[in-house]
Design a protein around this nucleic acid. Sequence first.
DNA 1: ATTCGAAAAAGTGTTGACACTTTGACGGCA
DNA 2: TGCCGTCAAAGTGTCAACACTTTTTCGAAT
Lengths: 217, 217
Amino acid sequence: MLDGEERTLVDRVVREVFALLLSSEIPLGGQLNEAALAARFKVSRGPIREAIKQLQGRGLVIKEPYLKARVVSLSLPDMIEIFQLREAVEGMSVRLATSAMSDTELDEMLDAFSAARQAGKAVDLDLHVRIAEGCGNDRIRALLCDELYYLLRLYRARSADQPGRRQDAFTEHWQILRAMRARDGELAESLMRAHIGRATRSLETLLAQQAATTDKG
Amino acid sequence: MLDGEERTLVDRVVREVFALLLSSEIPLGGQLNEAALAARFKVSRGPIREAIKQLQGRGLVIKEPYLKARVVSLSLPDMIEIFQLREAVEGMSVRLATSAMSDTELDEMLDAFSAARQAGKAVDLDLHVRIAEGCGNDRIRALLCDELYYLLRLYRARSADQPGRRQDAFTEHWQILRAMRARDGELAESLMRAHIGRATRSLETLLAQQAATTDKG
DNA sequence: ATTCGAAAAAGTGTTGACACTTTGACGGCA
DNA sequence: TGCCGTCAAAGTGTCAACACTTTTTCGAAT
């Protein structure tokens, strides 16, 4: 995510297009016009095309031959699919991390978590990222950090988060960290799955409400 | 995978390059030279580059700026990572499929499985594909069918499969199908995880042996 | 007024040439 | 002989022009 890492135009374009999505300048479900993006970023269409392919690989963009690329819609059903996948993968991620991370790393994570809790800062995604980075399985890390968390950030940028969940989430995260520190991978996995499962059910409730409202209106 | 679906050169190149990998014409860990591939397939470098980006997205190719793209090595540690991910994702896949698939679909799958068993045909990957396609979660389906199973096919094309596992695998698959038919998603998930977990441990044993041999030699 | 079809406009797919980076070979120097 | 800087060769990154597909526009026939 650091600018210094960008050795090529494609990388820059990927970051800038993602910023456009985050800022809602290109809406969810909106279209990506290669020529327009090329003009905007002062590059030719080649890098734009490769950047779109890359975003397509990350699941942020959907595209068919000769048709304009569309930004993923991130509808409630989409998010439920993503959360079901997260439940499975993050469960494994935390199980592996429980074995793979050193005492020092775990303590650092606990400290950072406590500090953030004091400061009242949201720490959710940071924590999940750290666990994924510590799980020792690079495919799982890439899937979570390079794909799913991008989608999550995009979703959160659009939808106000539930108010009541914040305190619960702190407790649930704390329990997960405790299980990791106790080197109980089984427990850590089931706590993580429950944690994400609760969020999934919250989305499903929202979907049911939305469906009911739409039916009436 | 059908030729008729290929409306663009990039799609054709992706298929042909993957065939080169399957046939060992390009070895695992080997390099992909854009110009050479362009000459071979009689296209310019543009489509080649996009195809490589796509293969990169599927995890078959690793690339850094200005360095040649390398085919993934699929070493034993790589495969273990892939199997750990599969264990988590396919567990969820079969759990969801157990709810989502109709009686008719399940029966068809059982019939096809029995027929293959009679004919003594290997059915492993087919079955996993069907389950993924029936799970109703398109992100999970894409992850399994468009990414992980490609890697698996590539791996199997190189390494002779274990002789004793075949009969065991039939039994394990049969149990999974029975659990699905009984609409017991929990059971189906844990059976699938055990099924893949066994394969993972078999890889880990192989790795340990390999390490021991290397140390001596 | 409506519908159908042809032609123009817009947009994506592909190409070959040029620019930049990396790599390896060559020669000078200690 | 061994090390370092320089330069040529190979390869990737980028660009602008051209080809093909899709969409829209517009007019004619019913």
